[in-house]
Amino acid sequence: MSLLIGVLIGIVLIQLLNLYKKKADAKKKVEGSSSNERKPIEPYRWTPDGNAADAPSDFQLSGNAGVLNEEERTAVEAAEADEWPDKEARPAEEPAAAPAQAESLPEGERIDFNRASEVLGSVGEIRSMAEAGMILQRISGQAPLPYSTIDFGRRRYPQCISIIIEETDALRLVYMLQPLLTNELLAFVGTNQWLGEEKHAGAELVVGRGETQFDIVRLAQTDAANYDSSTEDIITGLKSIDARYGISIKAASSDSVGFALLNQPNDLHTFCEELYAFCPDLVDQGVGSLEALEQHIANTGYIELWWD
């Protein structure tokens, strides 16, 4: 009899313990879903407004993130050359229509970097696409286009702005612009090969929006089609390099990504072998050998991956 009572008491205790555990788990679940808890930010694919003119039809929409508002678009298109906005860019009373094609700088004319330094030194920070457009016009003399291009210049991407300048100048200007950008603004060197109807003698300097620097690759829609690597595959590889050495993406086009390497690997030869596996054309159609690649990285700290 005492044994039976003991068993019954044990069963009751087990049930009580299970009930307590369920209540504790339920409490944790409620606390975990509290609005005060900071949830991890999910990366998003940058996409244009599906209603925008010239929007490529094969993009998948993800809301209105990053789309220019009317004030910004008006200010960019107006591109007031003589009136610099103090804090917020102001729309012109009669906005001019955006040109159908970029006006490249005359042959041989380059960016005046003394003027660029003076303009950027007076800015402090750049907080909107409209402000970025005004700055680019003051530096280059060009009214920014209300788009960048993808697919080797064949298609327009209507939620960025761009100017066309000499490629090395564009890269130098990106280095100067990036530290000043706020509010998820991104700057990079874009298309430099013009295989569509638009023909230019330089490269795009692009300003767009994204949560991280890897959205630059999404803005450019970079892929390695001949190696069956998608935009996201390339980003995965870049994130791996960034986690170990740190990178700062400066350029991205239809088939290439350029970045500054922030920390030199201790074993540079092994790192170059990794880069070769990731992007064979970097060596095979680029520098010619792993030794040459090592020397280039050691000297410059800059890497341009290219998939033919």
Rank of each mutant, 00 (worst) to 15 (best):
G50M: 09
S62T: 03
F59C: 01
S35L: 14
D54T: 02
P43Q: 06
F59N: 00
D49E: 12
S62E: 10
P40R: 11
I41R: 12
D58W: 15
S35P: 05
N51P: 02
N51R: 13
E37I: 15
L61F: 06
F59P: 02
R38Q: 13
D54A: 10
R45H: 12
G32S: 13
S57T: 09
D49L: 04
E42W: 06
W46P: 04
R45D: 01
Y44V: 14
G63R: 02
E42F: 13
E42V: 12
R38M: 15
S62Y: 08
Y44L: 13
Q60L: 12
E37H: 12
A55C: 14
Q60K: 11
S34E: 09
D49F: 04
Q60N: 07
S33P: 00
G50F: 04
L61R: 07
Q60A: 07
R45M: 06
S33T: 08
D58N: 13
D58K: 13
R45Q: 06
E42Q: 12
A53H: 06
D54R: 05
G50Q: 06
S57P: 00
D58A: 09
A52S: 07
W46F: 14
N36G: 04
R45V: 10
S57H: 10
D54N: 12
S33D: 11
A53T: 03
P48R: 06
G63H: 05
E37W: 12
